[in-house]
Simulated assay, not measured.
Amino acid sequence: MSVHPMGPDAPRPIILCVEDEPSLLHDLCEELRAAGYEPVGVPDVERAQNLLSQLTPAMIVCDVNLPGKSGLEFMSELRTGEHLSDVPFMLLTALADREHVLCGKRAGADDYLVKPVDYDMLLASIASRLAQVGRLQASHRTRLRQQSNELLLQWTNVLDKISHCALVCDAALGVRFANRAAYSLCRDGDNSLLSVDDMGQIALNGDIVRHPDVRQFLAGDGEAVKIDISSRTGAPRNWQVSMLALGERSAVTPVRDESFVVFLSDLSQRHLHNRAALARRFSLTPTEMQVASLLIDGLTKQEMCEQLNVSAATTAYHLRNLFSKTDTKRQAELVAMLMSVAWNDIAMPASARH
């Protein structure tokens, strides 16, 4: 009876096996399947690369000497790529001398086994490596959670000073914090973007949560997204929904524990910025003032380049200056800081000032 390496209810980790000897490939897959893994076997690198466009394995076990590209070449390409560079890679070889083993290690192999395959050693090595990956991922999630909680504490005071709706949401878009303007917006009969229950808990409506651009943003590793949406009840009003990531994002981490700032802006009022206050507070140049205003309006970096008719490098230069002058480090933090000054006394609802 096999023991599932990740627990009885967890999905079986996929192990990609690349071996051109049919009998050995069959035996590898059988041993891995019996041990609770989901093996996928192919005889060459070309077919392995085709598979990697459809699945992400927990680990790759690959022969060194293969027809076409070698296992070393395959591993080198993965290590220099963007999406699969962290996947553990085990090399199999019939060459047992020390130099060949060192060559494989230097090339980036996590493990190196010599044929004939010792299956007990193979399974022990895979289990150990995947356990190590699991510990690193758990540590990363804990760090993200701690960072998120620290940022939330830092931001509540800043966001409460913004005169239009600002919320901090988790990865499922559950609201962790809502500023005073958000509660004011919930009492607005013309708004259908937010709801509040009897316990005073605010929630984003389905038009935002299920929007395809929002879903794509949450599944990726981008820093910001902006969408325009209309209220469905009351007088017609057009809103801009801006989402910015708090803290570090990583597409590699399979389980997300992230936080996002969500700004809801009435498009009819979004250009009413107190430019003079911004310029005075942060000693901004005219061009920096333009960039700051576009950030408040929710434009992406690419849109700012097009609006200002400048290169990405020039926009990045002005953004660096804004980060320095506002003493912020991430785009969400910068936007919130700019909004807290530019919108503090502009169009502030009376109910949100108390």
Score class of each variant (00 low, 15 high):
1 M>N: 10
4 H>R: 12
10 A>S: 14
12 R>Y: 01
12 R>K: 10
14 I>R: 05
16 L>Y: 06
17 C>T: 15
19 E>D: 12
22 P>C: 12
22 P>N: 11
29 C>G: 03
36 G>F: 07
37 Y>I: 06
41 G>N: 01
50 N>E: 15
52 L>G: 10
55 L>N: 00
56 T>Q: 09
64 V>L: 08
64 V>N: 08
65 N>Q: 15
67 P>H: 11
67 P>V: 06
70 S>Q: 03
73 E>A: 15
74 F>K: 03
82 E>M: 05
83 H>Y: 04
88 P>G: 02
89 F>K: 04
93 T>P: 11
94 A>F: 06
96 A>L: 06
97 D>P: 08
97 D>C: 09
105 K>D: 00
107 A>T: 12
108 G>W: 01
120 D>G: 14
120 D>M: 02
120 D>K: 08
121 M>H: 12
124 A>R: 11
129 R>H: 02
134 G>E: 14
135 R>H: 09
136 L>N: 01
139 S>R: 14
139 S>A: 15
145 R>Y: 08
150 E>W: 14
151 L>Q: 14
151 L>W: 14
152 L>T: 12
155 W>K: 01
157 N>A: 07
167 L>C: 05
168 V>G: 03
178 A>I: 00
178 A>V: 04
185 L>D: 02
185 L>N: 02
187 R>N: 13
187 R>G: 12
192 S>E: 05
194 L>Q: 02
203 A>P: 01
203 A>C: 12
206 G>A: 15
208 I>C: 09
210 R>S: 09
211 H>T: 03
213 D>T: 14
213 D>G: 14
214 V>F: 07
215 R>C: 11
218 L>E: 01
220 G>C: 12
231 S>L: 01
238 N>G: 04
242 S>K: 06
243 M>R: 00
244 L>F: 03
248 E>A: 08
248 E>F: 15
257 D>L: 08
257 D>A: 14
264 L>A: 03
270 R>V: 13
271 H>A: 09
274 N>E: 10
274 N>C: 08
278 L>R: 11
280 R>L: 05
281 R>N: 09
282 F>H: 03
283 S>V: 00
284 L>I: 05
285 T>K: 07
294 L>N: 07
294 L>V: 03
297 D>R: 09
297 D>M: 11
297 D>F: 03
298 G>S: 06
299 L>S: 10
300 T>Q: 06
303 E>P: 01
305 C>T: 04
305 C>F: 05
310 V>F: 15
313 A>Q: 15
316 A>W: 09
324 S>C: 11
327 D>G: 04
327 D>H: 13
331 Q>G: 07
340 S>M: 05
340 S>N: 03
344 N>H: 10
346 I>W: 00
348 M>L: 15
349 P>F: 13
